[in-house]
Design a protein around this nucleic acid. Structure first.
Lengths: 337, 337
DNA sequence: TTGTACGCGTTATCAC
DNA sequence: GTGATAACGCGTACAA
């Protein structure tokens, strides 16, 4: 029913390869035949079948970007970093989510040679699957994982350093009584941030108050509830470090509701530097993850892989950056505990 | 270099079709041969070539989502609406941007039979191309366009109604002196919103002050500058309708800088209901576009197209909804002009 | 310049 | 249950 090159050839009264040559433009043909072919193809509503072309050429210059949440807060910046580098090198990027776990499009891209390479930013994809696909010859860059493997290079943000950075900042401002509002318990990111938090405290002769470690589920409401809990415990710290911005924003809301001023009464630091962080009041001091840079780096690494050279470093860690806004203040001497 | 079924067949000492039958699981085989095949395929690191499979089967159950900015503010909600419906019907969704204009991946999907259908939310894609691809047999749903065509169904938000809604709200609050901050001149959306604005005024015996129509480029800074201009003109209105939220947020910043209180001195309405609208201070009253619903509807329409039935309605218009927050106030009688 | 023939990797149809 | 063979639609040597 749908016209193919063969049909066009018949319609135009030429051979199959003449049609191919004409349409691809790689080989020069007579103006007369060119016209005949083009007209025939239009008459038949011919459309090239890219699938067949890919099968033939074996090199599709397509990168699969597999994420588990196309709607996530990072996705925008991340893909920008990738696209920029990809386009510069004449690669296309298609994005797909890994939601359906079992046989989502993401898995199909990993297992069925549908792309030249893949960038995976999806915790839903099992590590085994990643390693397996990589071993079978698909160049893969995994984001936010720490996989040591010859076939696989992974990039992660240095959450430890980020946690350290935020805490150090609070300590430098004179704070000694600092709460940590954790995300979820099974999050490696969260754990690393907490370790950085601990390290900064330890380096300054402080020890973490374990009753000040509350879990907030990485959500805004979780942050809100965490602060309510903290207030109920009466022993309010002078500074609070939230494991992510969304919780911090929920926390700011709770603090405002409790008539506790930020940063006068308590200093607040978040993590991620989501867009909102700049707009809440007061502006949220936070730790920025280099998302855009991570995308660009991922694509660059993938490119070298595609050129055949195996990467030297298999695990990259990118440093975070402290973004200073208005939610922190030097501790007034009178308030020192 | 990369193993194919043929290689596996040789390695396992069976025929090509036995390998296919075994791996697909469609046909029963002896446990013994099954084992031999599986082991051979693992030994050779065999991976199925999905491209070839698609070429053969002619039905890939893949929907291409083509957007011109994967990082845009709407994209998140939009794709959620699509994915939900797609997954329920065992379709996969791949997203790609149409940035590269000429031969971006988006165009390849439209022209090269790489998907069963397409949802296009990209102003970068020429209308001709869309119509052409649709006429050639690719089911397409175009978002944010008004194309009347048998081969193509388009969905758009009723920007006129949205503009009317916002303006009516301001009028109901007693405002008579209302400015319209436009986006870009060549935007159909903007124009429709403006027409809705005009209509609401006309219905209440008011006429638009044309010197109060300023362009703000749809950007935050544009909104900021527009307000600065407005203030410089001295003739400040009692209410301002921004053609989108980003401009409104820039406008709020400018108003704050000018010591003009919102909503006490001037009421402000935006358009879009982006996430930020809830968080700026004061909370921005705005017009919400039903983005998620649009995604779900688009996918549903596409599904009926895929089943072969041609749609009755070729142009759908979705109504907007007014979101009330804190940036508007009833005009105090004393201030009446 | 144009036509012929084959291969890409898979699935499907038929024999055995 | 297993195997030979023919598509699928396109690219591309190679020959004419």
């Amino acid at each position: 029913m749908l016209a193919t090159m063969k049909d066009v050839a018949k319609e135009a009264g030429v051979s199959l390869s003449t049609v191919s040559n004409t349409l691809s433009g790689n080989v020069r043909v007579t103006e007369d035949t060119r016209k005949r072919v083009v007209e025939a193809s239009q008459r038949l509503n011919y459309q090239k079948n890219g699938i067949a072309a890919d099968l033939k050429s074996k090199t599709m210059r397509t990168i699969a970007l597999i994420v588990d949440d196309l709607a996530g807060p990072f996705f925008s910046q991340f893909i920008q970093g990738i696209q920029r580098v990809a386009l510069d090198n004449r690669y296309d990027v298609v994005a797909c989510s890994a939601l359906g776990q079992k046989d989502s499009m993401g898995v199909k891209f990993l297992q069925e040679r549908r792309a030249s390479g893949a960038i995976v930013f999806a915790s839903d994809i099992a590590e085994d699957l990643l390693i397996d696909s990589a071993r079978r010859g698909l160049p893969i860059v995994a984001i936010d994982r720490m996989i040591a493997n010859d076939h696989l290079v992974s990039i992660a943000v240095d959450n430890f350093q980020g946690g350290y950075l935020a805490t150090k900042h609070l300590i430098d401002l004179g704070h000694k009584h600092i709460a940590y509002i954790a995300g979820s318990n099974d999050s490696v990111d969260d754990h690393q941030r907490f370790l950085g938090f601990q390290r900064a405290l330890a380096e300054h002769g402080l020890s973490p108050h374990f009753d000040l470690r509350i879990s907030g589920d990485f959500t805004e409401n979780g942050g809100y509830r965490a602060i309510k809990t903290l207030v109920a415990q009466k022993d309010l710290p002078t500074a609070i470090f939230f494991a992510n911005d969304e919780m911090a924003i929920g926390g700011l809301r709770a603090l405002a509701a409790e008539q506790i001023s930020v940063p006068q009464d308590v200093s607040v630091v978040g993590f991620d530097d989501i867009v909102l962080a700049r707009y809440v009041s007061p502006g949220l001091t936070t730790v920025r993850q280099p998302i855009y840079e991570m995308g660009a780096l991922a694509m660059n690494i993938l490119l070298t892989s595609l050129l055949g050279s195996s990467p030297k470093t298999t695990v990259h860690k990118l440093p975070c950056e402290l973004i200073l806004r208005d939610s922190c203040q030097r501790l007034a001497p009178s308030t020192l505990s």
